[in-house]
Design a protein around this nucleic acid. Structure first.
Lengths: 214, 214
DNA sequence: TTGACAACATACCCGGTAGTATGTTCATCA
DNA sequence: TGATGAACATACTACCGGGTATGTTGTCAA
C-alpha cells in the first residue's frame, strides 16, 4: 500500500524541525534558543513543534540522537574492515572529521549535550533519556579509544596516557565544529584537503610514525 | 595614607564576584546563568552584583577581561626571551596550558566570549566593549601564530596551512578547559605531567621534529 | 556627633519564554 | 458525504530572570 500524504510528510516535517533546531542550537546554544526561534527559522509557529516533540529538552535530545545516528551510519561501512589498528584509525578518523564538517550543526549539539551533562534535565524521564544518549556517545568514543590503544601496543602510536591521548585526539578531530564554516565556491576537494590536515594533526599528536599513515 | 576598609574591601569584593561569576558561567554557560545564581554562589543577593557591574553582559565582559589579563601577565616574563621560534613556542605553550588548567573557569569564559561573538550584546556600548576584548584576544593569538610561522620557515614545524595549523594548535592547547577537572590528592607534579602531554601533542601536531622540543 | 556616602539587601516591575488549551484546515475512510 | 483525526495555527497562562527603585547599615570625614 502506497503511503498517503500524511505518512510521506510526517518524517520530512519532523526532519525539517530537527534541522532548524540543530541550526538554532548551533548558532545560539541551548539556553539562548527559544522554541519560537526554531519556529521562526521554519517560518512556522510553536504549535507545529510541540505537536511533534514533548518539550524543548526532548527536541534537543532528538537532535542529539540524530547526530549520533549519522555518525554511526557513516562509520558502519568501515566496521567490517580488517587490518592494523593504526591504519583503521586513519580511515575512521577521516570519516569522523568529514561528519564534523558536513553535519556540524548536529555535531555541535552532540558536543553541547555532552558538555551539559544532566544540567537542565529536571524530570526523571529526561534524565533517563539523556543517560541513554550519553551511553551511546560513550560507546562511539570507545571505538576510537580501542583503536589507539591497540595502535600503541603495536608500536605505531606513542603516548604516555591513554585517556589523555584520547581526549586530545577527539579535541582535534572534533574541532571543525568550532572553526569550520563553509566558504563560497568551496569544492569537495577543498574540504577533503581540510579533513586531511585535521586527521594528520591528530595522527601526529598520537605519536604516529610519519609517513605510514596514508 | 593607609587604605581604609572600603578601599581594601572594594577590590576583594569585586574579585569575589568575578570569581563566582566565572564559576557559574563555566558550569552553566552564559545564557543559563542568572544573576541570582551568581549571587547565590556568593551567599549574597543581586544588589551587590549590580552595585559593582552595570549589567550581566558587563559582568561577563569583565570576567573575560580578567581571564585575558591573566594570560598576558603569565606570558609577560617570557616576552623578553630571545631564541629560536620553535623553542620559544614550547615555553609559551607551556605557560598557556598551565593557565588553561589553573584558571580554567576564567579561560572557559574567554572561550565562550569568542564563541558568542557579538550575539547578545544589544547596546552599542557593549558591542564596542566586546570588540575591544576580541581585539585583545586576537593579538594574544597572534603571538603564537607568529611563532609557529617562524618555526615553519626555519624548518622546525611542518604544516600546509598556517591558519588551520593555528586553529588546531589552539584547540589542543585550550582543550583542558573542557576536560580537565582537579582530582583529589593531585600534586603540582601531576599537573605538570598533564601540561607536558598537551604541549607535546600540540608540538607533534605542528609537525615539530621529535626530540628537539624539550 | 552627625551628615554623607559606599556597600550592600529588599521589594518590585516587566518583557520574554516554556508549555497549554483551543481553534482551524484538510486528507482519509467508512 | 460526513465523520474523524492528524497537522498544524492562535491565544493564553504562569513563571522566571534582567533590571530598577528603594530601604538599611556601617564607615569615614569634618
Amino acid at each position: 500500500m502506497a503511503l498517503g500524504i500524511r505518512e510521506r510528510t510526517l518524517d520530512s516535517s519532523r526532519a525539517a524541525i530537527l534541522e532548524a533546531a540543530a541550526r538554532c542550537f548551533h548558532e545560539r546554544g541551548y539556553a539562548a534558543t527559544s522554541i519560537d526561534d526554531v519556529a521562526r527559522a521554519l517560518q512556522s509557529t510553536k504549535g507545529r513543534i510541540y505537536h511533534h516533540f514533548e518539550s524543548k529538552a526532548d527536541l534537543f535530545a532528538e537532535v542529539f540522537r540524530v547526530g549520533m545516528d549519522m555518525n554511526y551510519a557513516a562509520l558502519e561501512p568501515l566496521r567490517s574492515l580488517k587490518g592494523e589498528a593504526h591504519q583503521l584509525w586513519r580511515r575512521f578518523a577521516w570519516v569522523h572529521v568529514d561528519q564534523m564538517i558536513t553535519t556540524r550543526a548536529f555535531q555541535r549539539v552532540v558536543w553541547m549535550g555532552v558538555e551539559m551533562h544532566l544540567v537542565g534535565a529536571p524530570t526523571p524521564h529526561q534524565r533517563a533519556l539523556f543517560e541513554e544518549l550519553f551511553e551511546t556517545r560513550s560507546r562511539y568514543g570507545d571505538i576510537f579509544r580501542k583503536l589507539i590503544a591497540e595502535g600503541r601496543e603495536s608500536g605505531h602510536f606513542h603516548f604516555p596516557n591513554l585517556s589523555v591521548a584520547n581526549q586530545l585526539m577527539f579535541m582535534t578531530l572534533n574541532s571543525p565544529i568550532f572553526w569550520y564554516s563553509p566558504r563560497t565556491g568551496e569544492t569537495r576537494a577543498d574540504i577533503e584537503d581540510l579533513i586531511a590536515q585535521v586527521v594528520t594533526c591528530a595522527w601526529r599528536g598520537l605519536g604516529g610514525t610519519e609517513g605510514t599513515g596514508k
